[in-house]
Structure formats: structure tokens, C-alpha cells
């Protein structure tokens, strides 16, 4: 009964996620332009994307992005055009090559390595028989108790 309840829940969640995943992925021109606007920095204000800024230049860039998308330019072409004009700092999303490999890859690698280490440690712990406290351990506990007395 309980297993059934968990299994039903798992099924529900999986189906929901799959349905949501298939519905996602809007590649209409407008969605593409909006996505690009999220990663182009407002040239007049630090750190804010043109999608979020009401500055006149930002509005002009959003219009320009829509025009370029409508004219059939690819996302990469549009990014390249902006980098060529304003320099790399116009993009809020750093490039994933060269040094950029570091900024994208390193956190992922470290999380995976950390998770791996935890799994490894927990396996080893489970394989080993339960340790008995050594003399050093007891001494430590004793000292910790004394610390607080």
C-alpha cells in the first residue's frame, strides 16, 4: 500500500516533468530575441541586461535584436556582431572556451567530485566494521568535556 503510494507519486512527478519538458523549448522569433536580450548587457548601466533595463539604448538594442532575428541572423551571428562593436563585456554570459571553460566547468566538476567523494566515503564506512573508540578518541572526548566544564 505504502509502496504503491510512493510509486504513484514517482509516476506522477515523472509524467509531469516529461510533459513539461516536451512543452518547453519555445523557438519563436520573439522568444529568441527575448533570450538574447537577457544576455546582452545594457551599455549605460552596469550589470543589468537590456531585457531588464528601461534605458533608451536598451530599448533600441531590444528592437535591433528583434529586427536581426526577423532578418534571419543566427543567435551566434548576433552575439558576434555585438561583441565586435562593444567588446566582450557586452555579454553577461561568458564564453565557454579557453578560460571560460574554468568558469563553467570548474563548479560542475567540483560538485561531482564532492558528491563522488561522499558516496565513496560512505561506502567505505559501511564496509568497515563499526569502529571501536581508540584511546586517542576517548582522550579527545574527555578533553572536550573538560573544555566545557
Amino acid at each position: 500500500m505504502n509502496r504503491l503510494a510512493w510509486a504513484a507519486l514517482a509516476l506522477l512527478v515523472v509524467v509531469a516533468v516529461v510533459v513539461a519538458a516536451t512543452q518547453a523549448g519555445d523557438s519563436s522569433p520573439r522568444a529568441r530575441a527575448n533570450a538574447l536580450a537577457e544576455e546582452i548587457q545594457c551599455p549605460e548601466c552596469d550589470g543589468v541586461s537590456v531585457a531588464q533595463s528601461l534605458a533608451p539604448t536598451s530599448r533600441a538594442i531590444v528592437r535591433d535584436l528583434r529586427r536581426r532575428v526577423a532578418a534571419g541572423e543566427s543567435d551566434d551571428d548576433i552575439r558576434a556582431a555585438y561583441v565586435e562593436r562593444y567588446g566582450e563585456s557586452i555579454r553577461l554570459n561568458p564564453e565557454g572556451d579557453g578560460l571560460g571553460l574554468l568558469v563553467w566547468g570548474l563548479p560542475v566538476t567540483l560538485v561531482l567530485a564532492g558528491a563522488g567523494a561522499l558516496v565513496f566515503a560512505s561506502r567505505r564506512w559501511r564496509r568497515e566494521p563499526l569502529m571501536h573508540a581508540t584511546g586517542a578518541d576517548e582522550e579527545l572526548v574527555e578533553r572536550a568535556r573538560r573544555d566545557d566544564a
Binding site: 537577457e38 567588446g87 566582450e88 563585456s89 553577461l92 564564453e95 568558469v103
Partner: peptide
Amino acid sequence: QGRQLSVGEPY
């Protein structure tokens, strides 16, 4: 690398 770039919300 002497490059000027930004890291923002999308990242």
C-alpha cells in the same frame, strides 16, 4: 588575458 568581460544574471 587582458580581456574585459562581464558575468551576469544568465550565468
